[in-house]
Simulated assay, not measured.
Amino acid sequence: MSQKPAPFALSDLRRSLAEAALRAAPAAIGRVTFGTPALDEPLGGGLARAALHEVYAPATADLAAATGFAVGLAIRAAGQRPILWVRQDFVDAETGRLHAPGLTELGLDPARILLVRARDAEGVLRAGAEAARCSGLGAVLIEPWGEPRLLDLTASRRLSLATETSGVTTLLLRVAAAQAPSAARTRWLVRPLLSRGLEANAPGDPAFNLRLLRHRGGLSEREWCVEWNRGRQSFEERRLDAAPLSRPLVPLPADRPAALGAPDSGLRRTG
């Protein structure tokens, strides 16, 4: 049976968000660039910063790639501000917990993450809405599991209005879910690509197949192949002549369900 989050959890989150808002300057405005003209130019300079964006993993096996893409966007949106990540417990049980060394491989210091776990979709949406209103954050990632009834068009509108008011980029990461009506500014479908080989057969940069499914600015559906450059902390268009490794590779390892009782090394929990 689904249980509601304990009352103190939301109050702790509110206190943490209030402290973040006091420490931070006003939220940035404008757009979040990808760092490559191949994406930025068609999108009019990148993604709207003060907006809700959806990132879909078409299958559970694609979640690592979708997560890596969302993390890259969060890094570029946040600058030096903290990133708040709201995750439903069931995602941990099905796919494994976030792993700090994997985030480091993407160029994200785990100490910058405020990690909030919620038992159910209601808790995820409540915490996500609170976070989206906080102008002291750099980005918010909201990760429910599946197709919760509460995550409807009305709920997405609340999230959209919250981020438009605060100016904080909010990313809704969806797995095991069909596409549904939403107030999100853009919707992306992400699959992994084979990484290109480096010298001495070292692991290559994570590579993604991106399909833009929806763009409220009128851009039609289109597709890109990109890599994430950790050093530059930017996306780069995938070279067609790049020699791939023998398997998809996204450096975002996760602890398996057997480790659910262990603490998250380097990740700060709120609530």
Rank of each mutant, 00 (worst) to 15 (best):
E164R: 12
P42E: 04
T36W: 03
A28D: 13
L219H: 12
Y56R: 04
L108Q: 05
T169L: 11
G218A: 03
A20M: 09
Y56G: 06
G204E: 01
L173C: 05
A178H: 14
L13F: 01
L103K: 11
L171I: 07
V116H: 07
V175Q: 09
V168A: 05
V190N: 01
V116P: 05
P257W: 10
T170V: 00
R239F: 04
D92C: 12
R87M: 02
L252Q: 09
L193W: 09
L73P: 12
A77Q: 11
L240D: 14
G146S: 14
R191D: 08
A200N: 15
G79V: 04
R238V: 08
A254H: 12
A64N: 03
L73Y: 03
S265D: 14
F34I: 08
L103V: 10
A74W: 02
R191S: 07
E236V: 10
A28C: 11
A93W: 13
G35P: 02
Q233F: 09
R238F: 03
R232M: 10
S220T: 15
P253W: 01
L151D: 11
D255Q: 14
L22C: 12
V250D: 07
E227M: 01
I142K: 00
P58N: 07
L260K: 08
D62W: 06
L114I: 08
I142V: 04
R126C: 05
R81D: 00
F208N: 03
A74I: 02
G46H: 01
A100E: 10
L172E: 06
A111F: 07
S16W: 08
A18M: 11
G107F: 05
I75D: 06
G217P: 08
N229M: 14
A180D: 13
S11N: 14
F34E: 09
P251D: 01
E237R: 10
R97C: 03
R81G: 06
A50V: 06
G107W: 09
G197W: 13
L194R: 13
F90C: 12
D12A: 15
A65Q: 06
V140N: 05
T163D: 12
P26C: 06
V124L: 01
A176T: 02
R211Q: 15
L189A: 15
D120E: 13
G146D: 14
A262L: 09
T169G: 12
E236N: 13
R14N: 11
A50S: 11
P251F: 04
G266T: 05
T270C: 08
I113G: 09
R238A: 10
E236P: 09
I29G: 15
G138S: 01
V124P: 08
A70E: 12
C134R: 05
A59I: 09
A127P: 01
L210M: 05
N229A: 15
A51P: 06
P244E: 06
E105Q: 15
Q233E: 12
G146F: 11
R81P: 08
R112A: 02
T270L: 00
G30Y: 05
V140D: 07
